[in-house]
Design a protein around this nucleic acid. Sequence first.
DNA 1: CGGTTTTGACCTGCGC
DNA 2: GCGCAGGTCAAAACCG
Length: 490
Amino acid sequence: MEEHTQDRREIAFLHSGEFPRGDSDDSEDHQPNESSEEHRHESSIKEVDFFSAKSQPYDDIGHVRTTTTIVGSSGFNDDLVMVNSCHGTSSDDGDDKTKTKTQIIRLKLELARLHEENYKLKHLLDEISESYNNLQRRVLLVRQTQVEGLHKQHEDIPQAGSSQALEDMNNEIAATTLKRRSPDDVDDRDMHQGRSPKTPRLDQNKSNNPDEQQNPHDQLPFRKARVSVRARSDATSVNDGCQWRKYGQKMAKGNPCPRAYYRCTMAVGCPVRKQVQRCAEDTTILTTTYEGNHNHPLPPSATAMAATTSAAAAMLLSGSTTSNLHQTLSSPSATSSSSFYNNFPYTSTIATLSASAPFPTITLDLTNPPRPLQPPPQFLSQYGPAAFLPNANQIRSINNNNNPQLLLPNLLGPQALPRDMVDSVRAAIAMDPNFTAALAAAISNIIGGGNNDNNNNDIINDNKVDAKSGGSSNGDSPQLPQSCTTFSTN
DNA sequence: CGGTTTTGACCTGCGC
DNA sequence: GCGCAGGTCAAAACCG
């Protein structure tokens, strides 16, 4: 019953021509026509036009254009082509039928060509993502090395000056980062070296393992820095696009709600873990703490959160190397990592660093009231809708002792990823039939009942993966107000 | 049957 | 050294 209603909405939506379009190669179809027809539909299109700022869903006479095939392999889109092709051709004239058939054939060929192109682009995206992650890792490892050097320097030569407090804080973080080593770090290394996790650990700095000596950076993962995400949710955990397996649960002191422990199961030996716990003061708030970097490619829906947490962790660690985060993050001549910062999606304008927490922790607070905004098409095209959290307008780290705040520049700078990358990401997202379905459902929901407070929940439930099925516990989404995580492709 | 969740036991680090 | 708390392990239960 519910599904039928949903289907009708989708069909109505498709007929309406308001389905967002991707950039087609047929540029002649994109006439820069600012017709009043379009403005009439603008209010309902604007918030879902993920791919193109120059979408022109209508032709000169108001018919749906037959080239509105933005996505890939599902029958859904074939139907779209068929529907559109038939729309407005009610004549019984045989010539028209022949023309229509020819047009259909041509469009199918074009669709096949686009599928092939999307396939290539998806592969390209995978390669880019992998090299991008590797590069990111390297840059951050270099910074980690700098932390070590500065820390030693700091021990030898106590610093003075007006920024003493900040330097002390940063160095304390660095010291904590380098000194502490959680037990799972052993696990990570042990997993890589085939050693039993139970093997007693000797002094890591004096390891006899040549691999460790040759690759000290490998022993400095970013497990130390943690990134917490606070979001309102009735679900047991947030849907961040990754697959997690629960491996423990504990009652934490001072909180009646148990803390659940998850580890990433998307790849064997992935060191990433997360803790999920409800806030004691407000049980509707779910705090998810991420630790570590993924050692495997991530699906587009997971990239946003992973990039954000990695960037936040990196910011934390890089902040320990220098008090000048402004310079680090905003310098146009900085390394690629700054580009990374400039593009990470959950960014905000304020961050505070804590030296008091056992682990340096940065918290992304998504529980604050949303600000009205329109996602810039450039941004959406870079990260996809799943990456866009309208309420992620604050990054706040745990600040137990009134540490000074470091003002960061707006990290959503104008710098964009290379155009090729943007197009690749766009193609990959558009190719994903799950995304198509989720998008269609979401749009149908918007059209069908924009004032329904449960809209997001409905979408969330549609995407919810039974924790018991398929072996994944990633299915629950937070109730992020207006959160586009509801467009998750999972 | 394979994978996940549950849950008590165990390990480790830290403060006193 | 002891106790506490956080984190992890692993066997049993559970589920599709």
